[in-house]
Design a protein around this nucleic acid. Structure first.
Lengths: 343, 343
DNA sequence: ACCGATGGTGGAATCGATTCCACCGCTGCT
DNA sequence: AGCAGCGGTGGAATCGATTCCACCATCGGT
């Protein structure tokens, strides 16, 4: 950083142009490089800009370009959850990488319940070119609001309300859960419980549905269900609940809707001296790191987050380029089974 | 939401004014309410605005007001850490609350190593009115850059470089660590080890220094040190390292530089059949929730995050109001000892 | 020697808000 | 009756960039 702020205020294009001895128009062209500028003028402008420490004023630029160069990631989720669920960390990491490649700035908006109005005001003020929304609850009307707003957006995971009005990138939660059940059945398990996610979240709901459907299809019992909230602790609690219920001792297979809950369950099983996979086989969901490190390593379904995010960013950039006039598209990825040692 | 986008584009103040039958000037005054407007005009404008679903264009507004109404929180930290350390969750929660009261929008910028230049570009583009920076490493030059930039900012935790050039809100890490040591000594402990944080982070460095200083002052050994990275897992590892070192069996007190590391250490002690606090007393640091839930509940130092954040936001708002011309101030909070059952 | 293409350039319009300033019609006081 | 004062109003300037458009050289081709 060699440039210095010359006087109190940030320097403007006008000053750069004056110092370089050209017009504002030429200075702008020289710095943006879209149009032809003589080598002499080019050099003069670049030098002047460096000397003054010039950076274009974002507001002025957005005003005329109708673009800001930044996109929002919206997480309508309590911040405890955002900061405890590895899903978000992985997702944001992928989004950041993906946006970087396209020279866009990531702006993270935490939509606390109640703070939603301010956030919508921000979005309507066009401070960002588009938004990626991930994980939200049953009563969330964000999809409708964004659609009304005409702001380009992509949802990761289908919203409950208004899903048909916005582009969605999703994974086949139900199909994946069915896959998990099939593996357990193929492994000879017959009394298969599930530790489900929250009922008011798509992922929780669909994974439970898939589990149930596959068991019903196989003519097996599908009433051993305990709900958690995707955290390790809730997995432990839910597992205890399952084991302590009527006939809980018969359980020989568990499908947990997240690896963290599977981990919690394994702790509970271990505490009771129940062996995995000898006595009870277990399949998790996510494969974001924890699954490899459990004892024994966890068989799980790989949540295709990176692929989903890449696709979401692609769709968003497309939507922005078209001015948000494209038809809502829908892309679904299929999680892959990762066999380890718990089944 | 009753308003509708009438045609393809977002509506402008000009359209609102036309519909209300007044001039742009009056419309603006009616909506912002700083100046007197007749009741009739007022009503007409408000109605028109609602009917058109008008929201002011952020770029245009920032351009003339020289304010954006949003401030950045910058976390120069790998995203794994941001999303695993409860410190950040708590901090962001407090920041969000504090900004909400002042009608400011929080914009979170994740400064991945390597992505820093883009972030600086964003800040120089004046997309935000100010920035709060938390937790950064030894070689981070952010303080200098921000100071050069003239962008109002406040650091939570003093940076290694350029701390004298920016306002800082800090906590007395060294003093708190000394306090922890004193409690252990007062409890009759004589062989006191520490599980320190990373050397290249202020909090890690200062807590270690405080521990050492207090032990030296008491004439006790200060060479039982193992380093972790504030995570639970690293606490377990570090604890094992301490116990396995020469004379590790003599240890009767441990100061861990974070509650998570203390928790990890307690797991390791438990695994070895060492009782807490009977055989080894332990003091943690942070008190952000985990400490209450350990077995037994952890004696620790309460990191005054909420107070620090409140003060930081206050200072930032002040700096923004003054156009960043105030002298760099420095405020230090003193962590409070929370006695529980591990000492 | 004249006539298009170019390649560069600067003036002016534009984006959408806020706000200064001049002005207008009242009221109320002398 | 005349004039100061004030509540309200609209025209125009302003913020700082991009870009259209008109214009001027210069160059090559007939």
């Amino acid at each position: 950083m060699t440039q210095v702020v010359v006087n109190g205020h940030a320097s403007t294009l006008d000053e750069v142009a004056r110092l370089a001895g050209v017009s504002k128009a030429t200075a702008s062209r020289a710095l943006n490089g879209r149009s032809k500028v003589s080598a002499k003028a080019q050099a003069a402008v670049v030098d002047a800009a460096r000397e003054l420490g010039y950076t274009p004023n974002g507001a002025a630029r957005s005003l005329v370009m109708q673009r800001t160069g930044s996109v929002a990631v919206i997480l309508p989720e309590s911040d405890e959850r955002v900061f405890s669920d590895p899903f978000f960390a992985r997702m944001l990491h992928a989004v950041a990488r993906s946006l970087r490649e396209r020279d866009l700035q990531l702006v993270l908006l935490l939509a606390q319940p109640g703070d939603e109005d301010r956030m919508l005001l921000y979005l309507r003020g066009r401070y960002v070119d588009g938004a990626i929304v991930a994980s939200h609850h049953r009563d969330d009307r964000l999809a409708e609001h964004l659609s009304d707003l005409g702001l380009p957006c992509v949802f990761i995971g289908a919203p409950w309300i208004g899903a048909e009005r916005v582009p969605v990138v999703d994974s086949d939660n139900a199909g994946a859960a069915a896959q998990a059940v099939r593996v357990l059945i193929d492994g000879g398990r017959r009394t298969i419980a599930t530790i489900a996610g929250p009922r008011d979240m798509r992922a929780g709901h669909d994974r439970l549905a898939g589990w149930r459907q596959e068991l019903d299809a196989a003519g097996l019992d599908s009433n051993r269900v305990a709900h958690g909230d995707f955290t390790e602790h809730s997995g432990t609690t839910a597992c205890a609940e399952l084991l302590d219920a009527d006939g809980g001792g018969d359980i020989d297979g568990i499908f947990a809707a997240s690896d963290l809950m599977a981990l919690g369950a394994m702790r509970e099983l271990g505490a009771r001296g129940i062996r995995v996979p000898d006595d009870v086989a277990i399949v998790g969901y996510d494969d974001l790191g924890v699954a490899e490190r459990t004892q024994p390593p966890l068989t799980t379904l790989r949540n295709p987050i990176d692929q989903m995010v890449t696709e979401a960013v692609r769709l968003l950039v497309e939507a922005i380029a078209q001015g948000g006039r494209g038809a809502p598209r829908r892309v679904v990825f299929v999680p892959e089974l990762v066999r380890r040692d718990t089944v």
